[in-house]
Design a protein around this nucleic acid. Structure first.
Length: 281
DNA sequence: GTGGCCCTGTGA
DNA sequence: TCACAGGGCCAC
């Protein structure tokens, strides 16, 4: 799925295009995608004005008037975008929202999701804050200082990559950026967090910030499914140093990158540059 | 913690 | 035909 940089890019793009638009019609083509009664979902959104669009972790939040919030999780293959005015929705467009811009022009919003893992949900008032997934999200990595970051991981027995992927511990990091940050920090994905010194965790904090910031500047990474709010691809995939490069030479030392599995996800790393123990670097 | 599962498509 | 894909939830 899109991770933090991709979701941030989408949120910025949608905010520019949807702020002030009024929902005229909601068409749910796949009930599963709205996680409940399609009629209720459509009725809740009809007539609402979109105030702004923001991101929390990997979650897109469309703040509307009347204290209504539309939350969208793209999971693996989801896209949320404003199509060209004459675009015909293909069979993977699960939800269509027709809106009117402040100038009265028609604007559409498509929720496109091949694998149907993603979802759109509406929340009224404080329902969002009480939603367990939202309530337990960890801090935003770009708003977290180095000391707080270290505290979040220090002393844990679990492998550092599994902790980076744990949204309750830190929100928004997925498989790509976990691998990229660990490579930049010179830390093996299977290293137990408890074996990493505060200094190395601080280095990891900087690597996480750097990789996320650079990826946002590049409008995210597009592997196959990700597109921004206008349907355009990102560019950060051209800057991957390890993700998707197993068996290719390390860009730092030329040794071949290796692949392992951590927390059920493929992890690519350099066996030379990324060490398990803290003493070697 | 880990593995299976929710889905569908793609590429080897 | 099979393994794999950017996520997260559920049961062991």
């Amino acid at each position: 799925m899109p991770e933090l940089p991709e979701v941030e890019t989408i949120a910025r793009g949608l905010n520019a295009r949807l702020a002030g638009c009024v929902v005229r019609e909601v068409i749910v083509r796949e009930g599963r995608s709205v996680g409940g009664d399609p009629e209720l979902f459509a009725a809740a959104l009809a007539g609402r004005t979109v105030r702004s669009v923001r991101r929390r972790g990997k979650l897109l939040l469309l703040d509307c008037d009347a204290d209504l919030i539309l939350a969208v999780h793209l999971k693996m293959t989801g896209r949320l975008y404003v199509p060209a005015p004459d675009a015909v929705p293909d069979k993977y467009v699960r939800v269509l929202v027709r809106l009117d811009s402040p100038r009265g022009e028609p604007v559409s919003l498509f929720f496109h999701d091949v694998r149907k893992f993603g979802y759109c949900r509406v929340f009224q008032g404080d329902e969002l804050a009480r939603w367990p997934f939202y309530a337990t999200l960890g801090p935003e990595p770009l708003e977290l200082g180095p000391e707080a970051f270290v505290t979040q991981f220090a002393g844990r027995h679990a492998r550092i990559k599994a902790l980076l992927l744990d949204q309750k511990r830190i929100a928004g990091i997925g498989n790509i950026y976990a691998d990229e940050a660990l490579f930049r920090a010179g830390i093996h994905p299977e290293a137990p967090a408890s074996q990493l010194s505060a200094m190395r965790l601080t280095t990891l904090h900087g690597a996480v910030r750097d990789v996320l910031t650079e990826a946002i500047a590049a409008c995210g990474s597009s592997i196959r499914d990700y597109r921004d709010a206008s349907g355009n691809a990102g560019a950060f995939q051209n800057s991957f140093r390890v993700y998707g490069r197993a068996s290719h030479p390390c860009l730092a030392c030329a040794n071949l990158l290796e692949r392992t599995r951590v927390a059920g996800r493929t992890s690519t790393f350099c066996p030379c540059c990324q060490r398990r123990d803290f003493s070697s670097r």
